[in-house]
């Protein structure tokens, strides 16, 4: 019975020890256990009880095996943990929302999905894509942790330059990226809706002669403007003025097209066969949203420029602190 217990213990520990060390550890571990048991028996213990206490002191065989194999008993160590956390936070707070928005836009355009459907699939996307992000990032870091490959590349030493910039107006790298992704998504959606989302394109194909290329050009200009602001590192009056002009122009184009019934494709099947003038109502809704969001954007940039000019501080999110550049 007691020999049995030792066998079970040793075999369990050896399962997780590298092959080439097994025979040696087997012999040594048995000898050590028997030495300890003998010492206990000599001190007057029952043999069976002595075996049990000895094994109890050696503890969990899996843990012992980890120790023999010199394996870390953690998933991601303290060296990589901050990088892992930062990467995952970036994915979940920046990339995930973008994916959710893109999926929602595609659904509305392609499948003519209703409000409930869009919300439902947004929740599904958050859970599904979020789980994938968490899993693959963690797996990647785990592999780096175990193999050490590329560890120095992603874990480069921190310098004060890495501190986030709180200067009024300066775009952080993440904001910059998000601001570039948005125009790209818009252009992509505009082009793709012509070909793939629906059999009959949602937007008026006649505009490809002139208005859609103009709109794409204007969106590209917005991207260049973002790049300009990022390089400049601060909001200035010029930035605000250019933004306002751009907003008025792009807003004017969209509003004109909507008002003149040239925006949506009149042949789009979703609009027909309904009693109400669906196209007209949607046009009004899009006009209001476009107008409001462009007006807000112009105001927001102007406010930031004004703040930067006066040297007012900015609120650092989540801390209640106000940072003032001096």
């Amino acid at each position: 019975m007691s020999a049995n217990l030792v066998d079970r213990y040793v075999f369990t520990a050896l399962r997780r020890v590298p092959e080439q060390q097994r025979a040696d550890i087997d012999r040594e571990l048995r000898a050590s256990i028997e030495d300890a048991v003998d010492a206990r028996v000599e001190a007057g213990e029952e043999r069976e009880a002595a075996v049990e206490t000895t094994l109890l002191e050696l503890g969990d065989p899996d843990r012992l095996a980890d120790s023999y194999a010199d394996r870390p008993n953690y998933l991601i160590g303290p060296e990589l943990y901050p990088v892992w956390r930062r990467s995952l936070m970036m994915l979940l707070t920046v990339v995930l929302p973008i994916v959710v928005i893109v999926v929602a836009v595609v659904q509305v355009l392609a499948e003519d999905a209703g409000f409930g459907e869009v919300i439902g699939s947004a929740i599904g996307t958050i859970i599904n894509v979020g789980a994938h992000m968490a899993f693959w990032v963690t797996l990647g870091f785990w592999i780096i942790e175990r193999t050490g490959a590329g560890k120095d590349d992603i874990n480069r030493p921190w310098t004060p330059k890495d501190l986030p910039r709180y200067e009024p107006g300066a775009l952080t790298r993440v904001q910059f990226a998000a601001n570039l992704v948005w125009p790209a998504v818009l252009i992509l959606a505009l082009v793709l809706q012509q070909f793939t989302f629906t059999e009959v394109p949602l937007l008026d194909p006649a505009n490809w002669n002139f208005w859609w290329p103009v709109l794409i050009g204007l969106i590209v200009l917005k991207g260049l403007w973002v790049f300009w602001v990022y390089r400049l590192g601060t909001w200035t009056r010029q930035v605000a003025v250019v933004n306002a002009i751009h907003g008025v122009v792009i807003g004017g184009v969209i509003l004109y097209l909507l008002a003149a019934d040239k925006f949506f494709n009149p042949a789009f099947p979703g609009f027909n066969g309904v009693e109400v003038d669906l196209e007209g109502w949607i046009s009004v809704a899009v006009m209001i949203t476009t107008g409001l969001s462009i007006a807000y954007e112009i105001f927001d940039v102007a406010r930031k420029a004004e703040q930067a000019r006066k040297g007012l501080g900015v609120k650092v999110p989540g801390t209640g602190n106000t940072y003032t550049a001096s």
Partner: peptide, 12 residues
């Protein structure tokens, strides 16, 4: 010192 610390340490 515990046995389960010492034995692996010796091999290391």
């Amino acid at each position: 010192v515990e046995a389960n610390t010492l034995y692996p340490l010796l091999r290391r």
